[in-house]
Nucleic acid binder design. Structure first.
Lengths: 155, 155
DNA sequence: AATGAAAGACTTCCTTC
DNA sequence: GAAGGAAGTCTTTCATT
């Protein structure tokens, strides 16, 4: 799963994590290499799944998603069937942007984006709490995004 | 802050949130529009900061970041000076990938990526707990990433 | 790895509808 | 607004050093 990365690879990854729209010529310049080896390194990093994909980031407020909430969901028990059923149900909810299975008890931490508090209530009460095996739900509002979508540190 | 988006804009944003590497010709095809109006819509969405930027996503395991942890940090009090000092210190820590100020008490929720548990201890004990105004730190391990980097839903 | 060159593809702009 | 076409730029590959 892990791959050897030299200093140039790390520079390439560091740049592309911040701005994937650079042309290959600009990237080559930023990492002090000529365009051909730069391109072949990028292709190799893509092939080896070090770079998994490229995405556009949107401004949540610009698309009307003003409420950002972390939701902790506790399940009744940790059987594999219940976890799988819950995860499948989560995948079908596009308001759930992130979902992690957490250590300790059988619980999940979700991050949810909705237009307003009413939408949050509908999501948690009408939908999440009715999912298979859900025992308890607790929501916490994010008042401010201090940092998000940060590049992974590459040592 | 919010902008009117028609159905075509939403299709464009939906596609680019999933794959920003499509050429304009491919994007135009995906949204059933010709390349010129497609490009001018994308440029307009960029200009209006609906699309904020384009980034490459890396595979965390491939770069040796195997441990993903949520850290809750509670501060002693909510004075503006203490919050600002803490946030500035967080910005300087590249292991902290996300950071949100949460409602309720004066606390922050961080998501952190580190190579191993030893690195987590060094981060929390040697660095986070020594930051200005920090009263309490609590870490929870993410055992599994069920969903991450999901596109924002566009109604 | 770097360089240079050539081919093909894409972006970008402009005119027309 | 959208479509079509032309021009310029960039990517991509290959041969050479």
């Amino acid at each position: 799963m892990e791959r050897k990365l030299d200093a140039i690879d790390k520079r390439i990854l560091s740049v592309l994590q911040r701005d994937a729209k650079l042309t290959n010529v600009e990237l080559a310049d930023a990492v002090s290499l000529s365009p051909s080896p730069t391109l072949s390194r990028v292709k190799s990093l893509e092939r080896d799944n070090v770079i998994s994909r490229y995405i556009a980031l949107l401004n949540p407020e610009a698309v009307g998603l003003n409420v950002n909430v972390f939701v902790r969901v506790r399940l009744e028990k940790q059987s594999r069937e219940i976890l799988s059923a819950f995860e499948a149900a989560i995948m079908a909810h596009e308001e759930v942007l992130d979902c992690y299975l957490m250590s300790g008890e059988a619980d999940y931490l979700l991050r949810v984006a909705v237009p307003d508090v009413a939408s949050l209530e509908r999501l948690t009460i009408d939908r999440l709490s009715r999912m298979p095996g859900v025992a308890n739900i607790q929501s916490s509002f994010a008042l401010k995004e201090v940092k998000a979508h940060s590049p992974l540190p590459l040592g």
